[in-house]
Amino acid sequence: MCTVCGCGGHSVEDAFRAHLEKTGQAGAPLAAHPAPLQSVAIPALGGALHDHGHAHAGHDIHLGHGPAGTEVPGMSQQRLIEIETDILSKNDAFAARNRAAITARHAFATNLVSSPGSGKTTLLCRTIEMLGEVPLAVIEGDQQTTNDADRIRATGAAAIQVNTGKGCHLDGRMVEAALARLGLPEGAFLFIENVGNLVCPAAFDLGEDAKVAILSVTEGEDKPLKYPDMFAAAGLAILNKVDLAPYCDVDLDLYEANVKRVNPAIEVLRVSARTGEGMQAWLDWLRAGLARKGA
């Protein structure tokens, strides 16, 4: 087969005959395979000269041999470079390194995401108290202040604050830097409390085992529908502050139905970090996750 134009069959003779037919020279005897003609190279198409041992009529246009190996109408071939790379591939590479480091330690990492004020830090403090003497580490993401890391450290746990300045989310690089300073104990729970933001953190993998979306009952039942990306990306949703439900005219079943409408595969837990309601189920979920990591 002619490797330039793809004409012809499997044997050399078949190939040549087919090629002659195609190029209108079928009458020519086989023995008279002429000396190689040069195809016209069309610079704009990136067609290189080729000198394989059979005749090409001088007008062939061979597409797909430029630097890009493809053709796109309206784009000049020689200048087209196929990238096919995920835009967040750099972040994903950091996340993959983090995930490998976390797995090597048999640790279980959760990325806690929610809008500001859903009670992430209170939930985390309560969780740390109830887990008792287990290895754990906390990365706190905010735009400003070390308030949250201070609250976590007050429980006796190791915590590091990452202030993003103007940034609306943590990214893989920040978590790698935090892990390098924090030191992750073997078999630990790693809690990464993301910047309070129900939109942006959904897109940035940090290397966690699961995203946990926290939604407090005061936020409104339609929040999962208004901000679906976060709930679609999460493996677990915690409906927090359920102790306030009687005062807020909210329908907890509707909350749960809306979360599941966005993500049918998500688990939902009803929790009050303040009263301790539902906390046991959350701890069980965490311990099961850690057990899966082989600690």
């Binding site: 796109v72 200048r79 087209l80 096919e84 790379t85 409408r261 966005v262 993500n263």
Partner: peptide, 30 residues
């Protein structure tokens, strides 16, 4: 839309399997 019902059966439980891509396809360069 993410929350559209199933166009086949009208069901509301759809698991998104595509449409979250963010890729650079190609570049035209000098």
């Amino acid at each position: 839309h993410r929350l559209d019902p199933c166009p086949e059966c009208g069901g509301g439980k759809l698991l998104v399997q595509g449409g979250e891509e963010m890729r650079i396809k190609d570049l035209e360069v000098l």
